Amino acid sequence: MTDCLVTDGGATAGYLRVGRHDFALYISPPGGAGGARLHGCPRLHTALAGHEVAVLRRLQHATSVGGFVGELREVLERQLAADALAGSLTPALPPAAFYEQLIAEVDGIGWASLCGLSPSLDELQLTIDDTARRAHVLTLSLPPDYPARSPVARAALPAPFELRWAPGERPSLAAAAAQFRGALAAHQSLWDELDDLDREAWVLEPKHPTRDVCHRRLALGGHCSLLVTLHPTAPSSLPELRFLGAERSIAPLRRALNSRLAEWRPERRVRLNLQALLGLALPSPVAADAADAADYSVECAICYEYLLDGEPPNVACDGCAKPFHQACLAEWLQALPSTQQSFNRLFGECVYCSKPISIEAVR
């Protein structure tokens, strides 16, 4: 098995192969009060024993997930070089009492809640509904001496989630599920607002958001979009807003928003507040299938991509309002014999409507 790591919504999960050993890991998104956190299978915890603080420090200061994974691999390779540790990574099977305890606890919470179980029975997934009947998955990694030691929990939540036990309290699956329900209750308002945006507005991205993602990019029309990031602990307050598109097109929207900021009402839906402040109706999901859906596109009309070197389209045609990356449009115009150049500026025709368009040449 080779490395298999997938990043979605800011979180990274999968398997890391070092030597002959596979380590399951999950890196939570960097957002939130606790910052990025590393979770893993019992084998990973055994290999990193005594190095947890150093690994966490490397994660907090890493500039990219790939860079941190490379450093983590180096740490594991050094640990595996010791024969004693390499031998300890293949522990004996848990005693029969471990399996008896696990089966009894799953009986107690109901087998219908069990949606996943690893072949070695050291990791299980529980489906738990919140008060709005939204399904959430809680993953529990069980140490070999469970329940003497607590399981490690991970879930798609906007804030870090860790199991905590009172002095003398014995860990159990039922208690872990109860703690998870408490964590779900804290985010009901946030998910209500995000579900309303997903249902009533045209969300350009993310296409398949997980419950730990607090942002939505909404189509506005005129080849513009709005990136809305809700506050996890105060979702009805004024969110972080960023207009995306050509400056000529988004400038009027920005002015309208700034002139009406005092009209934000926390008791009103975020979507309705945005419509009131912008003075327009947000396009609905059905607009994506309409005949004029192309009018809402925000991708570059030449390369058909949204981001180029991390930047969205920043030039728009005065005639048809099609958006372009400056580099894409400059390259296109330079290839046309009819384009004129004066100093560092190109004068030509729009790719689509043939109206005059000019742009600075990209060096």
Rank of each mutant, 00 (worst) to 15 (best):
residue 7 T to S: 15
residue 25 L to A: 01
residue 31 G to I: 13
residue 31 G to T: 14
residue 40 G to W: 05
residue 41 C to E: 06
residue 43 R to S: 05
residue 46 T to R: 10
residue 55 V to N: 02
residue 67 G to T: 09
residue 88 S to W: 08
residue 101 Q to I: 11
residue 103 I to E: 15
residue 104 A to H: 07
residue 104 A to S: 10
residue 116 G to S: 00
residue 119 P to D: 03
residue 121 L to W: 13
residue 132 A to Q: 11
residue 134 R to K: 08
residue 145 D to Q: 07
residue 151 P to Y: 06
residue 162 E to R: 15
residue 163 L to K: 00
residue 165 W to A: 04
residue 166 A to L: 15
residue 167 P to T: 06
residue 175 A to K: 10
residue 176 A to D: 00
residue 179 Q to Y: 00
residue 179 Q to N: 00
residue 186 A to Q: 15
residue 187 H to C: 05
residue 189 S to R: 13
residue 190 L to E: 00
residue 206 P to I: 02
residue 216 R to I: 07
residue 225 S to M: 02
residue 227 L to K: 04
residue 232 P to V: 08
residue 244 L to K: 09
residue 246 A to R: 01
residue 248 R to T: 14
residue 255 R to V: 14
residue 257 L to I: 04
residue 265 R to V: 15
residue 273 N to R: 05
residue 277 L to N: 00
residue 279 G to W: 04
residue 281 A to T: 12
residue 281 A to N: 13
residue 285 P to V: 06
residue 287 A to L: 12
residue 291 A to K: 13
residue 294 A to T: 10
residue 295 D to I: 07
residue 297 S to L: 12
residue 302 I to M: 09
residue 316 A to R: 08
residue 321 A to M: 09
residue 325 H to N: 01
residue 329 L to Y: 00
residue 335 A to D: 13
residue 340 Q to D: 14
residue 353 C to E: 04
